[in-house]
């Protein structure tokens, strides 16, 4: 069962795209791959005030991830706590994972020639910290939540 999720309080989000750069700098990524993304619908007028809401998307860390069986080298792995990650040493950059993912989430890191994706900054999580995007969210709109089973 997945233990974690990233939740966006869109009331506090100001679309500053900080999370995207926090993520990239933490992973040392060059221009190109973007592991999380802020997006919004075009503005529409609601009672005289033009509105839209910001949305956050990273990897869904599926219960039954389709990228996993597609990976020919077993580099795509799922941890017990539900975090789906790419083991960089084993990845050959074939991007079968991206083809298999309904959202095309894994991306090619042109610097390493390997797949890269959101892993909730697992090294940080293992140290009791939160993912980079959440830790440094400019308005504390992102939260790293631990899911509990009822």
């Amino acid at each position: 069962m997945n233990k974690y999720q990233i939740h966006l309080n869109s009331k506090r989000c100001i679309g500053c795209h900080g999370c995207e750069v926090h993520c990239k700098t933490n992973k040392g990524l060059p221009p190109g791959p973007m592991l999380c993304e802020i997006s919004h619908e075009p503005l529409r007028s609601a009672r005289g005030v033009p509105r839209t809401e910001f949305r956050f998307r990273s990897c869904y860390h599926c219960e039954d991830p389709q990228c996993l069986p597609a990976c020919p080298t077993g580099a795509m792995r799922k941890r017990e706590d539900g975090i789906v990650f790419v083991e960089q040493e084993t990845c050959i950059g074939c991007m079968a994972c991206q083809q298999a993912c309904p959202w095309g989430i894994p991306q090619l890191n042109p610097a390493s020639g390997k797949a890269v994706k959101c892993d909730y900054c697992r090294e940080r999580v293992d140290r009791g910290l939160k993912p980079a995007c959440v830790t440094k969210c400019a308005t504390h709109a992102l939260r790293f939540v631990r899911l509990v089973e009822f």
Binding site: G18, E20, V21, H22, K136, C137
Partner: peptide, 23 residues
């Protein structure tokens, strides 16, 4: 390896430009 807003004053919060200081 890491830049964040001063936790004592900003709770870690930083904008895109702040992180892009590394670039």
């Amino acid at each position: 390896t890491w830049i964040e807003g001063n936790p004592h004053l900003l709770g870690g919060a930083l904008c895109a430009r702040g992180s892009a200081g590394l670039a």
